[in-house]
């Protein structure tokens, strides 16, 4: 059984760690973790921690929310390309952030877990 599970990812988020995997066969970096490399198919993987710093690649401010996020409405969501080269989506905590802005990961703790977020770096 793989150890590279969604649960493991979420457990790390609780500790304010952003983790994925690195393929030992081809060097491909993945975030979040997966059981096999989506580039070469290898299952020879290892944990890889990301620093959580990067630049905004896409941004929106949502005014028609998901029920789970309605208390935050309006809220921003961004896609961030991390300095390591992988990208990930997160809630946006700061205003005045636009495509190209530097951001860093933040971890928003809620009753049912942690939401990955980004704030101005």
């Amino acid at each position: 059984m793989t150890e590279y599970t969604v649960k493991a990812y979420k457990d790390h988020l609780m500790n304010e760690e952003l983790v994925g995997v690195e393929c030992k066969s081809c060097g491909h970096l993945m975030l979040p973790p997966r059981p096999l490399c989506n580039k070469c198919g290898s299952m020879d993987l290892g944990w890889r921690q990301y620093m959580g710093k990067g630049a905004v690649a896409a941004k929106t401010v949502i005014t028609v929310p998901l029920t789970r996020f309605q208390d935050r409405c309006p809220y921003g969501v961004v896609i961030v390309t991390l300095d390591e080269g992988v990208s990930i989506s997160g809630l946006l905590l700061d205003e005045n952030i636009d495509v190209g802005s530097r951001v860093e990961a933040a971890y928003v703790k809620e009753e049912d877990g942690v939401v990955l977020a980004f704030k101005a770096a």
């Binding site: 896409a58 941004k59 929106t60 935050r72 969501v77 896609i79 989506s89 939401v115």
Partner: peptide, 24 residues
């Protein structure tokens, strides 16, 4: 569900992200 909707993305939100990248 984990990595997009789980951080707040709606379906219009995803295309809005595409639009922001296209504009840029």
């Amino acid at each position: 569900a984990n990595y997009e909707a789980g951080v707040g993305f709606t379906f219009p939100g995803l295309y809005a992200a595409i639009a922001s990248a296209h504009f840029s």
